[in-house]
Design a protein around this nucleic acid. Structure first.
Lengths: 239, 239
DNA sequence: TGTCTTATATGCAAGATGGATATATCTAGT
DNA sequence: ACTAGATATATCCATCTTGCATATAAGACA
């Protein structure tokens, strides 16, 4: 957009003023599906506030850094994960959400295949969703013994909203492929849907619907060494 | 959440540091449906930058103010509208989206019935959506002569994203009622859907679907003085 | 009283969905 | 070599939803 020289003069001499500004952070719900459940990545806080509690990967946004870049930087630094699917979730702005100071957090979610998740650094926790459908609400993250990790700040809300959003989007946006390897069977695809929605799906209807959707195409390959009839492998159909 | 005395000590002596922080603003896409189209409210900018161009209502978020409160304050101050349906849309954080300084904008949308919209202060513009379905992209706002208002900053993107979001949500979240008066006919309801989706709907299917959805109930009243058989009036069904 | 306009009711075809049944094909084990 | 076990794949059918057509109803107005 062309600006007039008068406007450029204004901008050259603009004084932003000294009113108090909030800090802005990003937090990332990194999700995968494995063993019939959703999993996420947490980090135990070593500093106050909420020391000892478990937090999502996140941190402050640089003054010249986009939100997306901040998310990518955090994912790389904390989780050692790069180049994954990320979408903005919601911006949490309650004045008292951090006891230190005003911090506005732009929460995001990232979806990765289980293999990428396994290679990430951090504490893996199984996500337990205590509500059905798209009701929403906080969710718990369970450790290996089935005990919930105490979560820091409003991160239980962020997780819950991420699950709610993904449950809703799954019906009409092909985000399930972000959670699957490059080639997959119909059973694997169905398991992803079942894990996210928390309920079983009709096998044949799922097959018919997905095959008829035009979203996937057969690779021509099949499984091998699976102890039963091998399933055909499919890949995401790229327009 | 109970905090240890040690943690409280930490917070008492916490130094937030002096790193540079962005400004945070809210912008609001105020939408209604009238005369078979979506309308929104704009304000011509009287100051640089983008002086003379047209902007959505919005402004900075107070340091102790929630995002929702900031939106309500802006709507009341700029549009003289209170107590309406508001949801968060998306947070726009590109470093160069405002030439003055780093401003991160949490965009929201508000849905109001036409009668509320008519009572609002500001420039009313008809929204023209140059894409079908949920493709997305910027939209135009037309003045009375059908000429587009030149929009400030990234506000065309905000408008476009609002339309895209509402088109998508309309299918499975009963947000249409926010755009209708307390009691309405099936024709009025259908016009809202048609205006948002930008396409005609089958009259009988719409009737059957909406009546069968359980979302509305008959008031027992009918129209009068409409020059044809009066339609039954319905209201939103409150669980 | 007739005409115009929209509302409302009913029926039907096409398609989507859920579910049952039958058959196919692989591995592991005897 | 054969069998058991497991899952894949194909076909069929009942049900539900949706789009569309047809028929009738009810008010305003000339």
């Amino acid at each position: 957009m062309a600006r007039s020289s008068e406007e450029l003069d204004f901008l050259r001499t603009y004084d932003p003023g000294s009113f108090e500004r909030p800090s802005v952070a990003v937090d990332v719900v990194l999700l995968t599906v494995r063993d019939g459940a959703m999993w996420t990545l947490l980090y135990q806080r070593t500093e106050h506030p909420d020391r000892g509690r478990y937090a999502l990967p996140g941190g402050f946004v640089g003054i010249e850094e986009s939100l997306e870049d901040a998310v990518a930087r955090q994912l790389k630094a904390k989780a050692a994960v790069e180049g994954v699917f990320v979408e903005q979730l919601y911006t949490f702005g309650a004045p008292d959400r951090d006891p230190r100071m005003r911090i506005i957090a732009a929460a995001h979610y990232a979806l990765v295949p289980a293999a990428v998740f396994d290679g990430a650094t951090g504490l893996q926790g199984r996500v337990r969703v205590p509500w059905e459908g798209e009701v929403g609400g906080p969710v718990e993250v369970l450790d290996g013994d089935g005990d919930p990790y105490p979560l820091a700040f409003d991160h239980a809300d962020m997780l819950g909203l991420a699950v709610q959003r993904i449950r809703g989007k799954l019906s009409y946006v092909p985000i399930a492929f972000e959670l699957l390897p490059a080639s997959f069977t119909l059973l694997e695809a169905r398991r992803v849907y079942e894990a996210i929605w928390g309920r079983d799906l009709n096998k044949d209807s799922f097959r018919k619907t997905l095959l008829g959707s035009g979203l996937i195409e057969a690779t021509g390959e099949r499984q091998s060494g699976v102890g039963h009839r091998p399933a055909a492998l499919y890949r995401r159909w790229e327009a």
